[in-house]
Amino acid sequence: MKRYIDFYLASMKISILEQIQYSVANYFYMIGMITEPVIYLVVWTTIAKQQGGSAGGYTVGAFAAYYIIWTLVRNMNIVFTPYGWEWRIREGRLSMELMRPIHPIHGDVAFFAGWKFVVILLWLPLAAILSWIFRPTFDIRWMEVIVFALAIWGAYLIRTMLLSLLGMITFWTTRVSAIFELYFGLELILSGRLVPMTIMPAWVQSLSNYLPFKWTFFFPIEVLVGNMTDAQLWSGICMQALWVGSGILILNLIWGFAIKQYSAVGG
C-alpha cells in the first residue's frame, strides 16, 4: 500500500509540474470548455423565463447553479480517453508502461488526479465570473459540501473505468472511433451533461438508473444544486462506490484477455 501511495504522490507531482509549465494554455482550454455549458445555460434560462421563471422544476438561478457546477464536474470528468489508448499503442508508449511493475491504469488515474488539482485552482476565478454574470442560487449545507468533495472523485473514477474499458478495445483493433462516438452520444443523453436528468422523459430517467452515466455528471451536480436528504446523499456515494468496484472487477477480467492479445505494434 505504501508503495502505491508513494507512486500516486510522485505521479501527481509530475502531472502538476507539467500543467504548471502550460498554465496559460490550460486556462485557454478551460475557457474554451465553458462554451458548451454557457450555450445550454442561455437556452434553458430563456425557456425558463418564457415559462414564467422556471422549467422542469428549475428556476433561472437553479439552472445557472447547475451549469456552473457542471463546469467543475466536467473538468473532474476528464480522463485518459480511448483516443489516448489508440495513440499510446500506436506510438509504442504502452510497451514502455507495461515494462513497469505497476499497472498502466494506476499511472493514468494518478496523472489525471494530479491534473485535477490544477484544474480546481484554475476553475475558481472562472466560476466567480460566471456567477457574477448568471447569478446562480445555492442553498448549500456542510454535509453537501463534504459529499460533493467525494462525489467528484467518485465521478472521476467511474469515468476512468468506463473509458479505460472502451480504450482496451484497441488491444483487438486500433480503429474503434465509431464505438467511442456512440458511447459519447449515450453519455450526453443519459448522464445529465446535456440537461438535468429530471427534465428528461420518464423512460430516459428510468433507463439512466441502471447505467453508470448519471453518477458521473448529474449526481455530483445535484449534491450541491438539489435538495437531497443526507440518506440520499450517502446512498449516492454508495452507488458510485458500487460502480467503481464493478468497473475494477470487469477491467481486471478483460485486462487478462487483452494483455495476451497485445501485439506491441507501435514498438
Partner: peptide, 8 residues
C-alpha cells in the same frame, strides 16, 4: 523521482 517511486 517518478522512476524511484515506480520501482520502490
Amino acid at each position: 523521482e517518478l522512476q524511484r517511486a515506480i520501482y520502490s
